[in-house]
């Protein structure tokens, strides 16, 4: 097999967007409300055929961005969940030992000893390979979205395994040669920032930092997720959560927390977010007691100021 020249650079990534606005609309149709910056970065990633490192707080919609993108571009989503101790065999490929052994044994019995399957050369073909998600994404015939989730969990050394795939969209296998992507997958790497990613990895990717959504976008999310939610309540919940996130609390509420809070507000049939409703439902938004205290304190000082 020949070693191919770089193909990723000029090949158009499968599944097209005309403009950042198009990205925005298509994602919104799939139920993901992105901001402009996200849309622009995705658009760029498609055009430059580059992976994106998506960073941001837990629960700011990193992983769901990938699933939404896959849904929008009708691509297959291949997911590599990273964890400490992840190795080459699970990321790229492994040889199917048992199958190889069986084939050799079968070869001895059925064929002459000098057949080329008997010396082992014949068992290193693609049919004896167990493809990991990365190789699968490279070999895929149709368009794919490759999600490498929580890449900060793997060790610094393992990161190097990703580099060839991410920059050249190819995998080199000593026994077979180089396998190059026919359709360039859209690659998203997510990171929670628990470890600094290496310069080498960062250099090869576009970076996107997902903030929590702006209040009005969060409202949109709430209204689509919870059709029974009154508009005014959604407004207020969005504004309140945005405010709480600026407070010095230990774990900021995620989008999921906001939704469950809104659900709780619906269940006590509150039409409007007032102190009483807040008091009853705040535990659905904040998990830590000390955070609840912080919020309570911040908003009760206003009480005194307002009364005086």
């Amino acid at each position: 097999m020949t070693v191919h020249p770089v193909v990723g650079r000029n090949a158009e990534v499968a599944g097209g967007f005309d403009s950042p606005d198009d990205v925005l609309q298509q994602l919104a149709a799939a139920g993901y409300f992105a901001d402009e910056r996200t849309a622009q970065t995705v658009y760029l990633a498609k055009h430059l055929a580059k992976p994106i490192i998506v960073e941001g707080h837990a629960g700011s919609g990193k992983t769901s961005l990938a699933t939404a993108l896959a849904a929008v571009s009708r691509a297959k989503l291949l997911r590599l969940q990273c964890y400490e101790g992840l190795d080459e065999a699970k990321v790229l490929y492994d040889w199917n030992y048992r199958k190889q052994l069986l084939a050799i044994e079968h070869g001895f019995r059925g064929r002459a000893p000098d057949d080329d399957t008997s010396d082992g050369g014949g068992v290193f073909t693609e049919s004896f390979m167990l493809a990991g998600p990365l190789l699968a994404a490279i070999r895929a015939k149709s368009s794919t979205v490759l999600l490498i989730d929580e890449v900060d969990r793997i060790e610094l050394q393992t990161e190097a395994l990703l580099l060839e795939v991410l920059s050249e969209y190819q995998v080199s296998i000593p026994e077979l040669g180089t396998i190059t992507a026919t359709t360039v997958p859209l690659v998203l790497l997510t990171s929670n920032g628990s470890r600094l990613l290496s310069e080498a990895l960062r250099r090869r990717c576009l970076s996107l930092h997902l903030d929590y959504p702006a209040p009005d976008r969060e409202q949109d999310i709430l209204l689509t997720q919870l059709p029974g939610l009154p508009q005014t309540l959604a407004d207020q919940v969005g504004a309140a959560v945005a405010r709480i996130r600026t407070m010095p609390i230990l774990s900021s509420p995620s989008i999921g927390d906001t939704i469950s809070w809104a659900r709780a507000l619906i269940s006590i049939s509150a039409d409007v977010l007032d102190a009483g409703a807040l008091e009853q439902t705040i535990e659905h938004l904040l998990r830590r007691r000390s955070d609840v205290e912080t919020v309570r304190e911040a908003w009760s000082t206003f009480d005194h100021a307002g009364a005086s």
Binding site: Q236, A240, A275, F302
Partner: peptide, 12 residues
């Protein structure tokens, strides 16, 4: 109307 006097709403 909604209670505008509510502490929380004024804060918001």
């Amino acid at each position: 109307g909604p209670q505008p006097n509510d502490v929380l709403q004024r804060r918001l």
